[in-house]
Design a protein around this nucleic acid. Sequence first.
DNA 1: GTTAGTTTAAAACGATTGTTTGAATTAATA
DNA 2: TATTAATTCAAACAATCGTTTTAAACTAAC
Lengths: 210, 210
Amino acid sequence: MASVSTKDILLDTAEKLFAEKGIKETSLRDITALANVNLASVNYHFGSKDGLINGVIVRRINPLNEERFRLLEELNEIYTEREVPVEKILYALLIPGIRLCFSNPHFLRFAGQIVSDPDKEVYHIFVSQFEQVFKRFRDAFKCSLTHLPEHELMWRMHFLIGAMIHTWTNHSGLNWLSGGVCKLNNEEEVANRLIGFCSAGLKAPLVKLI
Amino acid sequence: MASVSTKDILLDTAEKLFAEKGIKETSLRDITALANVNLASVNYHFGSKDGLINGVIVRRINPLNEERFRLLEELNEIYTEREVPVEKILYALLIPGIRLCFSNPHFLRFAGQIVSDPDKEVYHIFVSQFEQVFKRFRDAFKCSLTHLPEHELMWRMHFLIGAMIHTWTNHSGLNWLSGGVCKLNNEEEVANRLIGFCSAGLKAPLVKLI
DNA sequence: GTTAGTTTAAAACGATTGTTTGAATTAATA
DNA sequence: TATTAATTCAAACAATCGTTTTAAACTAAC
């Protein structure tokens, strides 16, 4: 009992292989072989491969979103009556994911695959979890960007979410594209750059539509 | 001969199904059944499934990138000696993809899957094609954002690429997240919003790193 | 009209997939 | 310790996959 359970070993190994090889490209035999457990244990503990995928998601997603909400709550307590700076809200939204990228390089690469997978019902599990986050932070931004029409705000949130997800999944790609110039030294540095970019985008003057 | 060739029917059908169901989730039998051609014709015309995937990519990628370069060249001819506005460069980079999204809703959803797929060698085909685009536009931005250190510029390009890809793959997701408020009326409108967001991000003041 | 090259047809191949089975083993309980 | 429940194990299952094969049909040039 003091030792790590088969269930946890499966979750860890699946998370790692899903991120490295892709979800569809990873067979249950790959996972159980690397985890040194029996093939049937996946169906025993999780019911199916989809159950395992689901298990990998929920283990990380809830703490991630709770941390976002906690940070946002902290801001509301500090900035009573005053306007919360956009950068602070962005920090609450973005830093939990970036921290997770550094502490666990696997999960959010795996998450990125899910977001761009059009078929899976797993996609809806993941995105529906994000719906609450989107709404809470939309309301927070609304209070600090009062001049911005709501649909314009949501467009811009859409773009920043794209930058966020791409940072999750492809930060090794930037190292390559930049010829090694852009390195990922620490999480605060990445967060600051992303926040700088996105806050400017959110605060941009309204575009004149033709 | 005047009729559409089997090869083209296969490319069209594969592109459509890859985008709708996912690459791994689409079997050659799915494709050939919908295309009303024989199963073996895939291997005859393309050698393998990977060959077909490759065919779907190269048919669209080259015209896309050529259009980007053409628009960039036009700018260089117009703005001789003068600084090219960042918005104009962004337009050259972004509008070909957005136009493709509207004229062909399938391909760039398919492309989004490839970008977030860590395993496939198809990924490298796709990304290596983008390497030239990245470098050409990096140099263009460099001339118009002279105060910005190169590595900072590349970070910001990384973020805008994320916003771009997310716009390709998930613009239906925004419609859903926004509760139908954000609609995709026409390509120029989407482009203007994305350009507004990204140009502000590129021109943002330098962040002070701790 | 014959022939050579190209394309399609139907069937089968071998490999891999997620899943299930039933016995063996371990752990927990009383 | 005896009994029960929980877990692990090796093996097999049925389905699906990409690919290959062999024959038939078609096209175009001589």
